[in-house]
């Protein structure tokens, strides 16, 4: 847990020092290009790696009533038997975290009348769902907002997102809700891992590292916007230079914290394809969710289906023929009369 924090701090420090001793070009230009390449290539390779293995069996988890008889109401989206149903199921899963929404927690009810004392019930628990959803959406919106640096002119939709995000109209520059909420959500996810003993037991360094990294990115980002007030115009010229493959750097005065922010983002991009973060594309591949539950209606093909070998009926009858005949069971071949 602390190790991964130290690693993140170290990366930040290296970037800071790098920018101070004139290596801005390395951290500001080379690293981002490398990171984007690694991210794209790595992610595509991971997806190809998955796709190369077949899905031998259709194993959707049924989360509700199947489609069977007319008078029994099917749970169309938790147990979908059509492509449309599967599409809705996946949309619910990806956009609303349907499965996490189901989460329950064993809770002890004090003074249950039936039990005359405490009783354990499995109670709906939505905290994890709520903060996970908050985190992912805020992250997405913050990501979207950054497109103002990548595009000229700024698309109307980005401006709209910014307008909504800054609806509170406090502070100057205007406070964006998503940035603040993102920070809170990351802290919740981190606190869960650290303080819930059960989760701490299962957490690995690979679980803390991305959280610390995101925390670093968010804090440096917030710092740049509200405290250091980085020169937006300069940053934009720099980023536009990057996106147009003609990086400019020499006549710009780039902030050290900006380089740290950029380096941490690059680290995230590089780390992404080799870590659990691949759950983002991975969820679309999940055979327990993305297959229709029509397995009795349509045959699913297994490309490596081995040849059928089993104890056949003729072998069976050969073994038991006399006894079967005596018991009056119908036979393919009558036994030889006893000598």
């Amino acid at each position: 847990m602390l190790e991964s924090l130290i690693v993140v701090l170290l990366i930040g420090a290296i970037a800071w020092i790098g920018s101070a001793i004139g290596l801005t070009a390395v951290f500001g230009i080379v690293l981002p290009y490398v990171a984007v390449c690694v991210f794209v290539v790595g992610l595509v390779r991971r997806m190809i790696y998955w796709a190369k293995s077949p899905v031998p069996f259709a194993i959707p988890t049924t989360g509700g009533q199947e489609h069977s008889l007319d008078f029994i109401k099917q749970d169309k989206f938790d147990c979908p038997n059509t492509k449309w149903g599967v599409f809705v199921r996946m949309v619910l899963e990806v956009l609303l975290f349907r499965s996490l929404f189901r989460n329950t927690r064993a809770i002890s009810f004090e003074n249950d009348p039936v039990n005359n004392g405490p009783r354990v019930v499995y109670y709906s628990s939505k905290w994890l769902w709520f903060f996970a959803l908050l985190f992912h959406y805020c992250f997405f919106l913050v990501f979207l907002r950054h497109f103002r640096f990548f595009m000229e002119p700024v698309p109307a939709c980005i401006s709209f997102v910014e307008a909504v995000d800054g609806v509170l109209q406090i502070g100057s520059p205007r406070f964006f809700l998503t940035g603040g909420i993102l920070l809170v959500a990351i802290l919740f996810l981190l606190a869960r891992r650290i303080f819930d003993q059960r989760l701490r037991y299962i957490s690995l360094i690979n679980d803390y590292f991305p959280l610390w990294l995101l925390l670093g990115i968010v804090i440096s980002g917030l710092y740049l916007r509200y405290f250091d007030k980085a020169e937006i115009a300069q940053v934009k010229i720099f980023i536009m230079g990057l996106t147009h493959f003609s990086p400019v750097i020499s006549n710009l005065d780039l902030n050290g914290i900006f380089i740290v922010h950029l380096t941490l983002v690059s680290t995230l991009l590089i780390y992404f394809p080799f870590s659990k973060l691949v759950h983002m594309p991975g969820v679309f591949f999940s055979p327990t969710r993305n297959l229709p539950t029509n397995t009795r209606e349509v045959r699913h093909i297994n490309p490596w289906n081995p040849p059928s070998q089993f104890f056949t009926y003729p072998e069976y009858e050969d073994r038991y023929r006399e006894a079967m005949a005596e018991a009056g069971l119908p036979l393919e071949k009558q036994p030889k009369p006893a000598e």
Partner: peptide, 13 residues
């Protein structure tokens, strides 16, 4: 089994 590869990779614990 694609499921196996996937389940090995995407768990976030």
């Amino acid at each position: 089994h694609r499921s196996l590869k996937l389940f090995m990779d995407i768990c976030v614990r």
